[in-house]
Design a protein around this nucleic acid. Structure first.
Length: 114
RNA sequence: GAAGUAAACUGGGUGAUCGCUGUCUUGACCUUUGGGUCAAGAGAGAGGAAAGUCCGGGCUCCACAGGGCAGGAUACUCCGUAACGCGGAGUGAGGGCGACCUUAAGGAAAGUGCCACAGAAAAUACACAGCCUACCCGGCCUUCAAGGUCGGCGGCAAUGGUGAAAAGGCGAGGUAAGAGCUCACCAGUACUGCUGGUGACAGCGGUAGCUUGGUAAACCCUAUCCGGAGCAAGAUCAAAUAGGAAAGUGCUUGAGGGCUGCCCGUCCGAUACUUUCGGGUUGAUUGCUUGAGCCUAUUGGCAACAACAGGCCUAGAUUGAUGGUCACCGCUUCAUUUUAUAUGAAGAACAAAACCCGGCUUAUGGUUUACUUCGGCU
């Protein structure tokens, strides 16, 4: 049975950590859905950070977007290469699309990281 | 049945599974005995508005915050409340056929200002058209006196027109023409009596002078209230680097700073030496959820609410948890079929705690109850 958990150790929490990934990491856009940044961290585990600004919508919309991204990450995280920091910046279409579509597109993008 | 008015309730449910954030229990390990880490189990986990941050408080710090000015808020009455600009019950005024609704509802006789357009004139009436020529003056005619006529000096504010508003209304008397000039009735103002009401006020009167435009969501005046900043408040601990802090000595000038914008008042107080202490920032912990708390019953009150008894413990995140998937049920819409119905598909508003309460405002899906008006049937 796989480990689908998503604990605090696997999150990016501090502003400097976010800024480092955004400045130095590799960047990939998925249409207008979202943008993914990745950077090796040398910690032996992968970490995820989510940015959902007020452009996305109100508090309800931003919560929805964050949950969708977290669900995708924890379902496929054992397939992603380890020791990498990932930051996902959500776009406007994130709110409109259903969970299924987000899961599909984002999974492909995360698995493509090398 | 249609249109409407006012309230109340509700804000999908059950199960499985994969996750997230606290709490409790058990076990293992570490330990500086404060606790920490890991695992398992139990149980909990967004709202009626959590929102806007518009008022009022609790709590915290600023020096327990004094006086004056400035500034801000409120403005019919009584009651409720910790408090309010909130709520309840009323009063007046206005709107609606009605159920019912609205109301920034003190003062314009303290002062200043403003009143567009139109109009002669918008507040000390500077009278456009108009009315009058009694008194006084002059010309002409008739003439005994006197009268007529024209004009002047003047008088008037009834009528007309303008306007949202024209200096009380209408009628009669009065007059040269008129006028509250006088009178009756009505309206208004001031003072006042009786009755009812805790009161705002209501009802019925009396006297007076005849009469006073609107605007205070213009300045202003009056009354009442208000210290400032806010949980990123504030407190504790740890780490590494030094701008600090306290005490004593010296200095006696009071620079500068804080306390609300200003003044008074008041507090700390420059630099040098010695000794001692210790931390701008970051992180963690705390503040942090037991509270003007919730539910039920009784009593008092028209009600808001209060008292009392019993029961209950009900989220605490910090890149910010409260979710995803599947199945079934319920609801709505559409399609097909049908007496009911069944099958399939799609959909489910507004909006997510962030120290905590009481309100207000705004957004929004649905249900129910009572009442009003109109129409139909009996």
């Amino acid at each position: 049975m796989g480990d689908f958990s998503f604990s605090k150790l696997e999150r990016l929490a501090k502003r400097p950590e976010f800024e480092k990934v955004l400045a130095e990491g590799k960047r990939k856009r998925i249409g207008r859905l979202c943008t993914v940044f990745s950077l090796p961290n040398g910690l032996g585990r992968k970490r995820l950070g989510i940015i959902a600004s007020k452009k996305v919508g109100n508090a309800v919309a931003r919560n929805r977007v964050k949950r969708a991204i977290r669900e995708t990450f924890r379902h496929i995280k054992h397939q992603i290469i380890p020791a990498t920091d990932i930051v996902v910046i959500s776009g406007k279409e994130m709110v409109v699309e259903s969970y299924k579509v987000i899961d599909e597109k984002l999974s492909n993008a995360l698995l493509a990281i090398k």
